[in-house]
Design a binder for these strands. Sequence first.
DNA 1: GTCTATAGTTAGATAGAC
DNA 2: GTCTATCTAACTATAGAC
Lengths: 205, 205
Amino acid sequence: MVNTVSDISTEQKILTAAREVFFQKGFSGARMQDIADEAGINKALLHYYFRSKEKLFETIFREAFEKLVPRIIEVFSSELPFFDKIRAFCEAYVTMAMENPFIPIFILNEMHRNPEGFEKTFGDIPKKVPHTLLKSVIKRAVDDGLIREIDPPQLIMNMLSLCMFPTISRPMFQLVMNMSDTQFKKMSELRKTEVADFIIQAIKK
Amino acid sequence: MVNTVSDISTEQKILTAAREVFFQKGFSGARMQDIADEAGINKALLHYYFRSKEKLFETIFREAFEKLVPRIIEVFSSELPFFDKIRAFCEAYVTMAMENPFIPIFILNEMHRNPEGFEKTFGDIPKKVPHTLLKSVIKRAVDDGLIREIDPPQLIMNMLSLCMFPTISRPMFQLVMNMSDTQFKKMSELRKTEVADFIIQAIKK
DNA sequence: GTCTATAGTTAGATAGAC
DNA sequence: GTCTATCTAACTATAGAC
């Protein structure tokens, strides 16, 4: 049977371990043995639950992707004033990036390594992102004279950059800036509000 | 002999091929066979010129890192007015990222995958980055009342984010924003000046 | 469901001829 | 310097016992 307690528990152990290993080493750097060890089980069991390394990876990747592309819809389709939408968006993304520091680099890296593979495997995901909604909300703010003339994709790119790049660049940034872990965390914590302030001042009229 | 024309040419062919393959697949995804094929030579020759995959990789990584951490010194130690420094910095970085689109994700990814390896192999590089210079130039601009109060590392992080994130996130961004290659390139071209404008407006008093 | 043992494949690296 | 052939190790995946 599939639905016994111990089955579920093993599957969960595998997923947790796979997340850990894939996030840290990427698809090609990860070894099924590493995942088995991390889960405290045997290699063969991985293949019993998930047919292949690819299948297991796809599960983890999908799940991570969904976390990365979160409920922007709620923020942007809400009745919040425009600047509060910006604030909510930034805080949500900076927080997500802080709590899941490996996800952004993991997703972006795998998309670079296997660009064509995603059109077919993940071609459905884009539809979940309300890019037309985003664009129209920004355009309206421009038309209303609330913010200066700016191309919506440019603004969206700026928001994403400021929210997600820090966790991606962390190892390099700390190295070249000679910054301790404590200092970096403090800085990240402040960014939850600073990023929105920065953006708003950059676009307000 | 080592300095014949054909020697140099072969070594260059290998380096060019290695760059191509490592940039696209990362260290663990790259195969020595791929590099040999790309260079139009035999696998054994790779080991003749560079003892191991690691050695070859280190050569490519070093070279890429130096490109990523370019002559900021010149920009920031120049006599340019502060806002022109910002403009020069942004244009240099956006251009670099456009011309070498694989380098940022390559470097940042490898640093995530092998965090400890860099302290010993690349511990010398940070010294080349004039982070104290950057910080003091920004601090002076604040003290002079030219820009609003802002933590220098925060501003540096913002500048780097806005310049480098677009090329890193390109596959995802185009996918979720439903954007063509042409549109993306046009957008990137505009960013050479837009990023600086955005930053300056965000910090000016 | 979970394990041990092993098949089958591919990778990095070397030996040795030219 | 450059090649072919080969060694050795590592990895994914499966067969089969319990």
